[in-house]
Amino acid sequence: MKRYGHSGLPRRAVIQGMAASFTLSLMPRASAGLEAALQARFGDRRPDTGGVELEVSSLVENGNSVAVTVRADPSQPSPSALHLFMPRNPEPWGTSFHIQPPALAEFSTRIRLSGSQDLMALAEWSDGRLGATAVSVMVTLGACADDLYGEF
């Protein structure tokens, strides 16, 4: 049987989300776009801190393709979905990953970032509870650049 690497993603700086008493209003650079995107998906529900991990490089070379892994805290019951938001992108809602057993609450993908920002990952449990974490990412070259001459 062939076994493959855990995620195939490189070793990289893993930054855990902020410590306790996390609230949206405390999020640096929380944008109106993010608020609207969260409202659209979760209504008035607001996340607690924790229950989800976001793994991403803290310094990104090119925002056109950024490796991320989102996973729920394995010590808790599995959530029904994991969500990823990029608050400063033209569209803050990045992706939602829906999970049914026997799938694990974990996925890896590559995303676009239009500039330096605080990424936000959420776990959503079937009882309606939400958990969140945020990670600050510095982007050397943003995605979505229109002007060729700015793309050196």
Partner: peptide, 17 residues
């Protein structure tokens, strides 16, 4: 000149686009 993430992407014969 690549950072660790992009080196790994090039080296990964599956994920290298």
């Amino acid at each position: 000149l690549l950072g660790p993430d992009l080196r790994a992407l090039q080296d990964d014969d599956f994920a290298n686009p």
